[in-house]
Amino acid sequence: MLIATCGLLVVIAGIYVLTPLFKEPGGNLEVELLAETELDRLLARKAMVYSNLKDLEFEYKMGRLSDGDFRRLEAGYKSEAAKLLQDLDRLGVAKDLDETIERDIAARKAKLFPGTAEKTRRCPSCGAESPLGKSYCADCGGKL
């Protein structure tokens, strides 16, 4: 009885653990596609610079900084943000950031799940097609 139970446990664990070795695709594609990219890092840093700027403004209004310091520091952060924007431009971020991210994701997804990325879903309320993975319809805003 004990031996049978133990054996069963080993088999279940073995199957569970070893399946990916045979089922999942080989190579390192997933790592490359799901890893943090330069775009991610730039965006995160940009968000941080903006939040620093907000903080700076707040602290200035609280009376912590002299006018001169505030202007100097604000200019510093703003030029940093401008530089990040230039870097983002270099990565091909056109005027619309959302669109670039969408494109980036779509490209990665197409490689990750070949065949599924083009799929669309029909909106139940207006009938427009939306790409899979969206939770709201782009046409009417209804929930998908």
């Binding site: 799901l34 943090e36 990219t37 775009l39 991610d40 995160a44 968000a47 599924t116 993975g133």
Partner: peptide, 22 residues
């Protein structure tokens, strides 16, 4: 959630939904 979130989190979410659909 803000639109300033980085793409990595968004792709992770997209992948999650995709896996769910699969």
């Amino acid at each position: 959630r803000s639109s300033f979130a980085n793409a990595q989190l968004t792709i992770a979410e997209a992948a999650e939904i995709e896996m769910g659909v699969k």
